[in-house]
């Protein structure tokens, strides 16, 4: 049954948005269907695959596990908001350079998770990177080039000062 709607307001990719949503609406579908931000993909219904990962107040979360009403008052960064001033985020550049994507469907989630990882664990070694990727299922790459891309992004990140992924909220790892 359609339920009554609740008013929410949040900052998405640096832009203030207001909406009326059903309490049961997931953040992933709010972003996709209401805001037209279709870069955030839904690949499963058990919060396993991670394709829908976004940054919520700087933390990488699966947006299929968050209700839109829970995001009220939060900063959300999606893949569409990852680049700044037309410049790709280091993970976007690195995924291209290292062929870290094939079909591209898990890629938005992989990028958001990687952006968080690169900003908050810049020194993560290969084993730690593989461990951190546990919340992501990719069927195309065998993860090999995703791992390489994250390592490449770590190197690119060293060359830039600003922690881009955490810029909205200072990005404290919780």
């Amino acid at each position: 049954m359609a339920e009554e709607r609740v008013a929410i307001q949040l900052i998405v990719n640096g832009r203030a948005v207001r909406g009326q949503v059903e309490p049961r609406m997931l953040l992933a579908y709010y972003l996709r269907d209401e805001l037209g931000l279709t870069g955030t993909h839904v690949g499963c219904d058990t919060s396993q695959c991670g394709a829908c990962t976004v940054l919520l107040d700087g933390l990488a979360v699966k947006s299929c596990t968050v209700l839109a009403v829970q995001a009220d008052g939060c900063h959300v960064t999606t893949v569409e908001g990852l680049a700044e001033d037309g410049q790709p985020h280091p993970v976007q550049q690195a995924f291209q350079e290292e062929h870290g994507l094939q079909c591209g469907f898990c890629t938005p989630g992989a990028l958001m998770l990687s952006a968080w990882l690169v900003d908050h664990h810049p020194q993560a070694d290969e084993a730690a990177i593989r461990e951190a990727l546990d919340g992501l299922i990719c069927r195309c790459t065998g993860y090999e080039n995703i791992v390489r891309a994250i390592q490449r992004a770590q190197a690119l990140r060293q060359e830039t000062a600003e922690p881009l992924a955490g810029r909205a909220q200072g990005g404290v790892s919780r």
Binding site: T38, G39, T40, T78, E80, Q92, F95, E97, G104
Partner: peptide, 21 residues
Amino acid sequence: VQRKEDVRLVRGRGQYTDDIQ
């Protein structure tokens, strides 16, 4: 050669079937 398709895909600008409204 870097992939031409990646330019849209790493920006979340792919056009998958469920993206169509």
